[in-house]
């Protein structure tokens, strides 16, 4: 399989805390990578370094064959990474004064310079796909959290990114909305799009991911198939974390 993402020695430090201590990672084309770990383990930072929302200090990011030296990234490098990845955020971050349709169209019109008619057709199709065909003229403040997140997914998909980055996409949602959002993500994964998902939804990760990494203190402690990492973790730390995660899961159920 083609390599889509290749990370070598990715490092990031905030003041005195080293958040990423040299991450090596490979994601093949069409693969879904699940990233799990406790809060503060560096999951989100890892994801955000991939499209330079955080600027990594050192290391190499290779996206679909083009290598970017993190320490000396040019503007063109950053543009390349951002154009070919799209982030879905925990808190959606839809544009307040744009309708659902305009939110999805924004990247097509402004970044890809598509004409408005085509952009609108593409965007309507995408909103249909995420089950919001009847909400195109709603503003974010008129949509529920789950609906906003589905619009946000459509907004990312509109740019046809090589890689979708999802940063705890269901953490801010109620249990009923979660199902809808996960269904949409599953649908996107099924079409063979490469994805990196940071999530605490262990069942979902085990279901959808081809590869799982367990991050602890800025290092990858475990990596392998969901069955390996979630089912039979090798380290004590991962066992501890998963035991607690499962405990909260069963309590919630």
């Amino acid at each position: 399989m083609n390599s889509m993402i290749r990370l070598r020695g990715l490092r990031k430090r905030f003041d005195h805390i080293e958040v990423l201590k040299g991450i090596d990672l490979d994601v093949a084309e069409g693969e879904v990578l699940g990233v799990i770990g406790a809060s503060g383990s560096g999951k989100s930072t890892l994801l955000r370094c991939l499209d330079f929302l955080e600027v990594p200090d050192a290391g190499e990011i290779t996206l679909d064959g083009r290598a970017v030296d993190a320490a000396h990234a040019t503007k063109a490098d950053v543009r390349y990474l951002r154009r070919h990845t799209a982030m879905v955020f925990q808190l959606f971050h839809l544009f307040t004064y744009k309708t659902a349709l305009e939110n999805v169209m924004e990247g097509l019109v402004t970044v890809q310079k598509l004409d408005k008619v085509t952009a609108e057709a593409v965007s309507r199709d995408l909103l249909d796909r995420v089950g919001l065909g009847d909400r195109v003229d709603h503003f974010p403040s008129q949509l529920s959290g789950g609906q906003q997140q589905r619009v946000a997914i459509a907004r990312s998909l509109a740019l046809n990114p090589k890689v979708m980055l999802l940063d705890e996409p269901t953490s801010a949602l109620d249990p009923e909305s979660i199902a809808g959002v996960l269904a949409v993500i599953r649908d996107v994964a099924a079409e063979g799009r490469t994805m990196v998902i940071v999530s605490h939804e262990m069942n979902f990760i085990s279901d959808i991911a081809d590869q799982v990494v367990f991050l602890n203190d800025g290092e990858i402690l475990e990596r392998g198939t969901p069955a390996q990492v979630l089912g039979a973790p090798a380290t004590e730390r991962a066992r501890q974390f998963l035991a607690r995660a499962n405990l909260t899961l069963s309590r919630a159920a």
Partner: peptide, 15 residues
């Protein structure tokens, strides 16, 4: 202005 929206704009490739 919500910092997250600025990041969202950057993440879809806006300058």
């Amino acid at each position: 202005v919500d910092r997250g929206q600025v990041e969202a704009a950057h993440s879809i490739g806006m300058t």
